[in-house]
Amino acid sequence: MADQGKDRWQEEMPARAKRPSLGGFLLTVVVVAFLFSGLAGANLSVDRLFDGVLNLGHFTMQAVPPDTSRVPHVLGAIVETFEIALVGTAFGVMISLPVALLASTNTSPHPVVRTVTRGVVSMLRTVPELIWALVFVIAVGLGPLAGILTIIIDTIGFCARFFSERIEEIRKGPSQALESTGATQFGIIAGSVVPAGFPSFVGTSLFAVEKAIRSAVILGLVGAGGIGVELNTAMSMRMFDEALMIIILILIVVITVEQISTRIRKKII
């Protein structure tokens, strides 16, 4: 304890802050520049904010009370949306399972197959669903089929990835036990991998249904069928009371589906 004093630990004591690297500094400058340029581009002014609030007020005044006269018609469109979501998810999940088996390290027949499958799945996921919808509307025309195809693609991107992650986590032991009975690769996968992953697959699929319903609502905006078409029409014709009714119905459906799916998930896992 002899050399106590100010100079002690001068070398060893960590600095208060580390000097940033050149790359980090440049990145910060660029990001900050975009931030300011973005704010400027939004043309933010007190006037516009004030007008915005007023317009919202107008919208609310016209929207309340919601117009219930077209509820039966709107309900039909909501059911169509629900069906698009359900059919799309069902097929998506059915395709996702084999795809996930091909994409998982422990079940894939060959590393090349695995890499290619993974690449395709992440491409499906990376392209936003609205773009898929636009593509399918061009391919099969306006209407629910385009919506269903979009949801299938979207579900594969989501489910195949999470299924595959679950499959790779599955313990080797039980599979090895089946292998040691002389089981074939199919037997091992069907008998140990799929059952072990099943609760997780169901949970993921239920999430996919919830996600699909929200997507299916939006898909109508580009003409891929369902309630979105109605909402788009109501909004552009400034029939805000009808639009509000549609929004309320959408909320009810989405919340109901989420509740049911949460309950099933709790039961299964």
């Binding site: 039980p174 090895q176 036990a177 008998g191 140990s192 059952p195 072990a196 609760p199």
Partner: peptide, 8 residues
Amino acid sequence: DFNLIYNL
């Protein structure tokens, strides 16, 4: 560790 398929 037995290696059963536990949820069956």
